[in-house]
Simulated scan of single mutants.
Amino acid sequence: MARTDGDTWDLASSVGATATAVAALRAMASQGPDAALDDPWADPLVRAVGIESFVKLVDGERSETTDSLVTPQSMTEQMVVRTRFFDDFFTTGVAPPTTSGQATASGVRQAVILASGLDTRAYRLPWPAGTVVYEIDQPDVIEFKTRTLEGLGAKPTGQRRTIAIDLREDWPSALIDAGFVTSLPTAWSAEGLLAYLPPEAQDRLFDSITDLSAPGSRVACEYVDMSGLPSDWAEQLTERSQRMGATVNLAELIYTGERNDAADYLKALGWQVGILGASEAHTSNGFEPPDDDMVAFGANYGYLSATLK
């Protein structure tokens, strides 16, 4: 179903189902003795949501594909790269050139995970003592994940605080009401989010982040140079994902209109921006760079991190 103003979802529908798809890939990457990721909560969360196609992916019952560039291995490797980037951004991993990621290693003790979905970083990252981790998402999403993880006996490793609100509403006020301190530097993540926002909502998101951020704050998101994409890129992504057995129609969920370049927009707001290209990110993780425009979005796809000076 196509997006509408004010639409809502849970983790089995619309945009929420994409969060479950991402968790399924993290679960796959966390399997086996030589697992590339360590996310013990991804698998049970995917099973609790109960989307059959994603449970089959986790169980290894994957659709046959003749597309050698989009295989379970290639999709899992991309998720490993993406997950490690955001993990490292929050903790002490390798930061992109020209920026200082490694937020908590630099003394940041306040983190905000926007559109948190089935993100489990509040439960699995080694947050320093005193770190407050805010998660913002739709009420049904927040309620389901919190209830499910409590049932599994999971305990947050930081001070987790949830804000059950749509990002199209007044989430900054809700965040402050939950205890957010605007005078403290903050680490913000917008993983897998921007394409699901209308262009003007993306600008408002960055404006709000800037208004709420003290000097030394950091922000991270995926970066795509939209000018380099084919006109039917959303349809191609949908076709590729469905070859893997997914039933989500990404073309109906993504906003494809012209939008401001995230890097340029943040620079204009006073952020020092760096971009880690997809090929470099894959190579630094020991993987072959993706050799396909719709997998890598060409040369102008990667991961953005920025610091507010």
Rank of each mutant, 00 (worst) to 15 (best):
D87L: 08
A19R: 10
D177W: 10
I176M: 15
R121D: 05
K309D: 15
K155G: 03
V70I: 12
G286C: 02
S279W: 13
R84K: 15
K155P: 02
A234P: 01
A36N: 07
G151Q: 10
G270T: 00
L125S: 02
D293P: 09
E258C: 12
S183E: 12
I136E: 04
D291E: 14
A263D: 00
F287M: 05
Q272F: 06
T247L: 04
L114I: 08
T18C: 03
V55R: 08
G228A: 03
L304Y: 01
T148P: 05
R240T: 04
L308M: 06
Y223V: 03
P156C: 02
P172C: 09
A23R: 04
Q202D: 00
G257P: 04
R82L: 10
L193M: 04
P289M: 04
V141D: 04
I176N: 11
R147H: 12
L193D: 00
A21W: 06
S74T: 13
E252M: 02
Q110L: 06
Q242H: 06
V46R: 01
R82G: 11
S30T: 07
P230H: 04
A214R: 06
L149T: 11
T8E: 14
N249L: 07
K155W: 11
F144D: 07
S13I: 13
S208T: 14
T98V: 15
G277D: 13
F144Q: 00
G32A: 08
A115I: 09
G93P: 10
W41A: 06
P198G: 02
P72I: 02
L57P: 02
L304D: 01
T98L: 09
L194V: 14
A278E: 12
E52Y: 05
A281P: 00
G277H: 14
T162S: 15
Y196L: 09
T66G: 15
V94S: 01
A263H: 03
E150S: 13
A129D: 15
Q272M: 00
A19E: 08
R160N: 04
D38G: 09
E169R: 12
P72N: 03
L114N: 09
N300I: 09
E258T: 15
S100G: 09
R160L: 13
S213G: 05
R82I: 02
T104Q: 08
